[in-house]
Simulated assay, not measured.
Amino acid sequence: MGDVQAMFHQVKVPKGDRDFLRFLWWPAADLTKDVAEFRMTVHLFGATSSPSCAIFALRKTADDNQGNFPAEVIQAVKENFYVDDCLKSMASEEEAVQMVKHLTALCQRGGFTLTKWISNNRTILQTLPEEHKAKDLRELNLDRDKLPVERALGLQWCIETDSFKFKMETHQRSCTRRGMLSVSSSVFDPIGFLAPVLLPAKTMLQELCRRNFGWDETVPQDILHHWTRWLEELDMLSEFKIERCMKPKDFGNIVHAQLHNFSDASESGYGAVTYIRMQNNRNDSHVAFLIGKAKVTPLKAVTIPRLELTAAVLAVRIDLMLKTELRLPLQESVFWTDSTSVLKDIMNEDKRFHTFVANRVSAIRAATKTSQWRYVNTKENPSG
């Protein structure tokens, strides 16, 4: 993982556009002089346009140097950067060392300096210049000291164990709807590792909305009891961790990979979860969690069969996203549901549905085949 140093300030603003970035300042910071008008010549942090302009400049750098670097390096610039953050996994130490070298050289051609490098591999860290290492690594003895915990796009990445962890610092808030929302929103979980944990909090907030409680009203005792218990259990997440790499070490080459999508719904919520099943050339199999999504049911009453269908659509959308993002040759995905009504709707060729059902069945049929849908027992459905 690396970071582009002061990325926005490396990209010039065209002269014709600089009037939009005018500001007033005292010449030479002398407050006795009259205020003068200045213009920014580079993109500044805080402007809505800065990220897209900087990303365009970085990608243009890759396009302009396609003939000078390997194709995988050009691809990494276009697909493995999130604004100024670079995150890339490689199969071997040798490949990783070369990737860092090429990425640094390529970005430098566009005036971008890649720095704050960090890796879960000590051999790679030893090849990095001291000034280009992440700050927490510069004073470490790589032969003896434990590697630190770093933030990777908001997630806590424990580099020593190469796993994701959750640092729970839920400061005491008032027992109001506002305070509950503040605490539950402070848990950052974009991949859905904690979806089963966060759903009860969302359900409690929804119940307060249903009862028309104001933002700063004290919550009733029945919800307060559940909320206090939820907070106590939330502290236990500090001990929870999940492996970053979905493929075990020494698993070898993947010869078969397939996504398995599960969906389910209840009166309080619905959701979907996706696993990947991999097989190597030794016929060994491994299943890994990829992503999960959980949502509360709408305030307006919706029947369980319709919620099950909505969950199935969510599973299809997740599958489409993962097939775009994963750099693996995938077999045809499999979709699992414990709702026989959903399966009948998807398989149906003759019946005309109401608009709600028709739209969702249409979305499912447009992206999948009926042969991809299968039944799973409720007790064995991991999305339940």
Rank of each mutant, 00 (worst) to 15 (best):
E308V: 00
L309V: 02
L309Y: 00
L309Q: 00
T310P: 01
T310M: 10
A311R: 07
A311I: 04
V313Q: 02
V313N: 01
V313L: 05
A315H: 03
A315Y: 00
I318R: 01
I318K: 06
D319G: 02
D319V: 00
D319S: 11
D319Y: 02
D319C: 14
L320Q: 14
M321P: 01
M321S: 08
M321Y: 12
L322E: 04
L322P: 07
L322N: 05
K323Y: 06
T324I: 03
E325N: 13
E325A: 09
E325V: 11
E325Y: 13
L326G: 10
R327K: 15
R327M: 09
L328T: 10
L328A: 07
P329Q: 10
P329N: 13
P329R: 06
L330S: 00
L330K: 00
L330G: 04
L330I: 01
Q331H: 14
E332F: 05
S333K: 04
S333R: 01
V334W: 06
V334K: 11
V334A: 11
V334R: 14
V334L: 12
F335W: 09
F335Y: 11
F335R: 00
F335M: 04
T337L: 05
T337K: 06
D338V: 06
D338A: 03
S339Q: 05
T340P: 05
T340C: 06
T340H: 09
S341L: 13
L343A: 10
K344F: 12
K344C: 10
K344E: 13
K344P: 06
K344A: 15
D345H: 15
I346E: 09
M347W: 13
M347S: 15
N348S: 15
N348K: 02
E349V: 10
D350N: 14
D350R: 13
D350M: 09
D350T: 13
D350L: 01
K351Y: 13
F353S: 09
H354N: 10
T355F: 08
T355L: 12
T355D: 09
T355C: 09
F356S: 11
F356R: 03
F356A: 03
V357M: 03
V357G: 01
A358K: 12
N359W: 10
N359T: 07
N359F: 11
R360Y: 01
R360N: 04
R360M: 10
V361A: 11
V361C: 07
S362A: 15
S362T: 15
I364V: 14
R365N: 10
R365K: 15
R365G: 04
A366T: 10
A366G: 08
A366L: 14
A366P: 04
A366D: 12
T368Y: 04
K369S: 12
K369C: 08
T370H: 09
T370Y: 08
T370S: 15
T370F: 13
T370D: 11
S371P: 08
S371R: 06
Q372P: 03
Q372W: 01
Q372N: 04
W373K: 05
R374Y: 06
R374Q: 15
R374W: 05
Y375E: 03
Y375L: 04
V376M: 01
N377R: 13
N377Q: 14
K379F: 02
K379D: 09
E380A: 06
E380C: 06
N381V: 07
